[in-house]
């Protein structure tokens, strides 16, 4: 059974999440404040955390920073704050995804599933990933589409590798730039746009209905494709 820690000071939100998640077979642990959340996290070791930012004692971003000191548990922020700065702040603190209230239950569940897949033990991650007709051989750094090799530049491949190894995670512009181009980068969002566009073209991701790489306006990108078994 999957254990979910729900951290929110509003009992109504906790109730809605509890009933929705329990009905789908999740085991739910609740916390109404930041300190309580950290205690529950240590005691119960949940598989995933759903975290509100506006907590009575600690700010949600602070909770993320503290728990990231010793835990890699996936964290989905669930907040009424919808400003770009809030999203980027929480993601930079170590959150994996950000959902704004009001939210669709099915949307939240989809994001949770993506996170939980990523959290599978690393040795189980296959050297070859398949997404529909797309095949990525991480060991040999080869990409095939419909069995045909796709020629990627080194930077395009780095970007793709970074995304597919962090599926479902909302990757901020700054984070991706620093991972791919180096720590001196962070503001050059247009580099990302250029390379994401090239990647989408080469991978056959329809720009009007993207199914591989989703743009989160002003925040970053997300690899959304579900791997084929």
């Amino acid at each position: 059974m999957t254990h979910v820690l729900v951290v929110d000071d509003e009992p109504q939100i906790r109730r809605a999440l509890r009933t929705g998640l329990q009905a789908r077979g999740y085991d739910v642990v609740e916390a109404a404040a930041g300190d309580e959340a950290l205690v529950q996290l240590a005691a119960r070791e949940p598989d995933i955390v759903i975290l509100d930012l506006g907590l009575p004692d600690l700010d949600g971003s602070e909770v993320i920073r503290r728990l990231r000191a010793w835990s890699q548990v996936p964290v989905i922020v669930l907040s009424v704050r919808d400003r770009q700065d809030d999203k980027i702040g929480a993601l930079d603190a170590g959150a994996d995804d950000y959902v704004t209230k009001p939210f669709d239950m099915d949307e939240l569940l989809a994001r949770m599933r993506a996170m939980l897949r990523r959290a599978q033990p690393a040795e189980a991650s296959p050297p070859v990933l398949r997404f529909g007709d797309l095949e990525i051989d991480l060991a040999r750094k080869l990409v095939r589409r419909d069995g045909t090799r796709v020629r990627l530049t080194p930077t395009e491949y780095s970007l793709l590798e970074l995304m597919v190894t962090n599926p479902g995670k909302l990757l901020t512009h700054r984070w991706v730039l620093q991972k791919v181009w180096g720590s001196g980068y962070g503001e050059e969002t247009h580099y990302l746009h250029v390379y994401v566009r090239q990647l989408r073209q080469k991978l056959g991701d329809d720009t009007s209905i993207p199914r591989l790489i989703i743009t989160e306006p002003g925040v970053g990108y997300r690899w959304t494709a579900d791997p084929a078994p």
């Binding site: 750094k141 080869l142 990627l152 080194p154 580099y191």
Partner: peptide
């Protein structure tokens, strides 16, 4: 346009 990253791996990409 944007520059290639000089951190990107040199080897084994594409045919």
């Amino acid at each position: 346009s944007a520059p290639e990253s000089d951190r990107a791996p040199e080897r084994g990409v594409g045919p």
